[in-house]
């Protein structure tokens, strides 16, 4: 990855809203052709960062260059080469699916005939060709999401910004969206996305930053982050009771470290099965034992002491 051309470069980027600091001095570099992720819980500053990159929100401080240009002075020229898929679908409800794409293309100055051709190709790409004439309110949530993604591609952008692309979708719809984003990535499109889903980040991102409280807590590829901030495997232990502290004391020394959660204990160890055997050897009989590979969830837990998606 090294040596690739940097399409987005931020140094000490800050965004404040009055007293509140949403983004607190972050450094980011996104290279050509990679899929880059901002991972973090709600309120971490991901969306504010995306709006600055999308040139619809002016930075309060720091440096930001996109495609080698200055967002403050060259906003329209930059936006001409970006594709944006916002967190909430803001499709035009008075228009059909196809018209949503053709009118949007016109905002980029794309000739009508080209716009029509590209709209049909994109509807095909997001598997909505049979719904071309449907108005937006006749489409399901997943379809609307795919249409929004298609809209973000109408100007054949150099960079596509996706803010939580699959939040609120059912599993089937999510996988369909992921599959299309994969294809885009293979075609060499640079993707920048935010998410609070671990699996999404691991599936799609070549490189990512973990954001918390407006700052970057860690940076690297999903594999690197897991290696640095977690062990190879994790043992999840449940004991069927709520007071877990006594068990934690008895588990001390197994694996590299442990995390105490409200409903379970996590044991970090490179050999999960050996660690699980050790638990039984100490005469503890958990009601549930799960050995799994470490994930970005564990990275986040380690970095911030909190779970990413609140578990009920």
């Amino acid at each position: 990855m090294d040596g690739g051309e940097a399409l987005i470069r931020a140094r000490g980027l800050v965004k404040r809203f009055g007293e509140f600091t949403a983004v607190d001095g972050i450094d980011v570099e996104v290279r050509k052709g990679e899929a880059f992720g901002f991972l973090g819980p709600n309120g971490a500053g991901k969306s504010s960062t995306m709006r600055m990159i999308g040139c619809v929100s002016a930075p309060t401080g720091g440096e930001l260059a996109i495609l080698g240009m200055d967002p403050l002075r060259q906003g329209p020229a930059i936006r001409a080469r970006l594709g944006v898929c916002p967190q909430e679908d803001n499709l035009d409800i008075e228009l059909t699916a196809r018209e949503n794409l053709t009118t949007y293309a016109r905002y980029f100055g794309i000739p009508r005939a080209t716009a029509r051709r590209r709209a049909d190709q994109l509807l095909e790409f997001v598997q909505l060709a049979d719904r071309a004439g449907s108005k937006v309110d006749q489409l399901s949530g997943g379809m609307r999401r795919r249409l929004t993604i298609a809209r973000s591609l109408v100007n054949e952008p150099d960079i596509v910004l996706l803010d939580e692309p699959t939040t609120g979708l059912d599993p089937q719809a999510r996988h369909l969206v992921w599959e299309r984003l994969f294809r885009l990535k293979r075609q060499g499109t640079t993707l920048v996305l935010t998410t609070h889903y671990m699996d999404e980040a691991e599936q799609l991102c070549d490189r990512l930053v973990v954001m918390d409280g407006g700052r970057i807590a860690a940076e690297g590829s999903p594999r690197e982050l897991i290696e640095q901030h977690a062990t190879r495997e994790v043992v999840e232990l449940r004991f069927g009771v709520t007071a877990l502290e006594p068990f934690a004391d008895k588990l001390a020394g197994i694996g590299e470290r442990l995390e105490l959660l409200p409903d379970r204990i996590l044991l970090y160890a490179d050999d999960g099965d050996a660690a699980a055997a050790e638990v039984y050897a100490r005469n503890l009989s958990p009601s549930g034992v799960l050995v799994r590979r470490a994930s970005l969830e564990d990275v986040f837990l380690h970095l911030t002491g909190r779970t990413l998606v609140e578990t009920g």
Binding site: P76, L82, P86, N90, D92, Y104, N155
Partner: peptide
């Protein structure tokens, strides 16, 4: 309400 312009502002249109 329709947030129509939010999407337009993501294009070169000012």
């Amino acid at each position: 309400f329709a947030k129509l312009y939010d999407s337009v502002l993501n294009t070169p249109v000012t």
